[in-house]
């Protein structure tokens, strides 16, 4: 059964339409990559899954995104509940000005996890899942800012994982990182899909080709083509997709 079903999704910034009749299904335990030139609507689309677009004034949306039996586009759903299940990692690593420990436990602590030993267990397991534990286990009280860029991004992933989410959204998570850090994050994503459903926006077609199972190509707010990643990259049906993938524009 599909994890998420998007039907006829339209999104507007004031009068400007950013997404046009988007239809898509997201399968569980897969990585779905969203690619396309900047301004094509892929980030707007990603941010619709955890309603981060709510912070932008003057936007409107219609259509539906069905997840867990609810239409999460609906104004009346509990967005906080939604964001607990749909985690997000941003373009620029954004550790909070707190210790590594406090960064990881930030969400669960405020959602009611007060017992110290449970917190410790959760921090350890989340950091292990994020492949950061070995590097930081000695200095959990150090500020998150003291880590390298790649480590910071994995810390942010651990912060997400500690909430035990169902879906993970990644918004160009490696665009601010060096190639080695990028590789580590990519390996991590492939491991994580065993337990989570992952949607990633990426500016790098190679990244999409390397890690994703499905790829969707966006252009001017429309999904031009979506399918198995291997299929899209070797045998695109639409010639705009092919031209984008071969670097003719973008």
């Amino acid at each position: 059964m599909s994890k998420i079903i998007v039907e006829d999704l339209n999104f507007y910034y004031g009068d400007v339409q950013a997404l046009k009749d988007v239809n898509m299904t997201i399968e569980p335990n897969e990585i779905t990559a969203l690619i396309g030139p900047s301004g094509c609507g892929k980030s707007t689309f990603l941010r619709a899954f955890n309603r981060m677009n709510d912070f932008i004034k003057n936007t409107s949306v219609d259509g539906s995104i069905i997840y867990d039996g609810m239409n999460i586009v609906d104004k009346d759903i509990d967005v906080v509940e939604l964001r607990m299940k749909v985690g997000m990692v941003f373009q620029k690593p954004n550790p909070l000005p707190k210790s590594i420990f406090e960064n990881v436990i930030y969400g669960p602590k405020r959602h009611g996890l007060k017992k110290k030993h449970l917190q410790k267990e959760l921090v350890e397991s989340s950091l292990k899942q994020a492949a950061l534990w070995e590097e930081v286990k000695e200095d959990l009280n150090k500020s998150g800012f003291e880590l390298s860029g790649g480590q910071q991004q994995r810390l942010c992933i651990a912060r997400c994982l500690s909430m035990k989410p169902d879906i993970l959204l990644f918004d160009e998570p490696t665009s601010a990182l060096d190639p080695i850090s990028t590789m580590k994050i990519e390996d991590l994503l492939v491991q994580l899909k065993e337990h989570y459903t992952i949607i990633i926006v990426t500016h790098s077609m190679h990244q999409a080709a390397r890690i994703s199972d499905k790829t969707a190509f966006f252009l001017n707010g429309e999904v031009i083509e979506m399918g198995e990643t291997g299929e899209i990259f070797s045998n695109a049906k639409d010639n705009r997709t092919e031209r984008y993938i071969s670097g003719k524009f973008g």
Binding site: N50, M52, F55, V80, E81, L82, R83, M84, G87, M88, F90, K92, N94, P95, L96, P97, K98, Y106, G107, R110, H111, C156, R159, C160, M163
Partner: peptide
């Protein structure tokens, strides 16, 4: 910075929790 506030909202914090957890500190 906005991206710090986003970090807090993305793990399901309410506005007030974000204020006490990120904005005020």
């Amino acid at each position: 910075p906005t991206n710090l506030k986003e970090a807090s909202y993305a793990v399901g914090m309410t506005k007030w929790q974000t204020i006490t957890g990120v904005v005020l500190p």
